[in-house]
């Protein structure tokens, strides 16, 4: 992580900065756009943002590492957001996490070797009546069982192979 030699295309973030750089208090919004553009927050982008908004890189880094939404590393093709809400917990989300772990060999925050999946435990997704729930690339999967979760992952693997 302590590397600053990624070569991101900074022109992509320029329009965002043109819009927000002079509006105070926009750092989080800028970072959100940056992450949407790059998939994560590359170091050189962070430095560029800091420069454009006139803050120190340490400050930008402080914000980027405070919020769980932001990532400093690229994620897999499929981002599995596993809900850790109370309802999901009560209804067995730990077993789902174990199943995902077993199926993909990754723990929370890790990306599978094939670069397909990243597992991220997230705060309540708010679909408590469907608990336990996970969200993969915006799609919600509810009333999971360990077997059902594995099945979903296998389908996605197949899908990725076909592509």
């Amino acid at each position: 992580m302590d590397c600053c030699c990624n070569n991101s295309d900074l022109s992509l973030i320029m329009p965002v900065l043109d819009k927000y750089a002079d509006t105070k208090g926009s750092l989080i919004t800028i970072l959100q756009h940056a992450q949407e553009i790059y998939g994560y927050l590359p170091t050189d982008v962070i430095y560029y943002i800091a420069d454009r908004i006139g803050e120190s890189p340490a400050k930008v880094m402080g914000v980027a590492t405070f919020y769980s939404q932001f990532r400093l590393k690229p994620v897999g093709k499929y981002l599995i957001m596993l809900c850790q809400g109370t309802a999901c917990h009560v209804n067995g989300s730990q077993k789902i996490e174990q199943a995902i772990s077993d199926e993909l060999g990754i723990a929370d925050g890790e990306t599978s070797d094939d670069g397909l999946f990243t597992l991220k435990n997230v705060a309540c997704l708010g679909c408590c009546s469907l608990s336990p729930v996970m969200m993969i690339n915006g799609e919600t999967y509810g009333r999971l069982t360990p077997d059902k979760a594995k099945e979903i992952l296998r389908t996605l693997k197949e899908k990725a192979k076909e592509e």
Partner: peptide, 8 residues
């Protein structure tokens, strides 16, 4: 609207 970024 200001979107949060994930912090309880």
């Amino acid at each position: 609207i200001k979107a949060g970024a994930g912090a309880f």
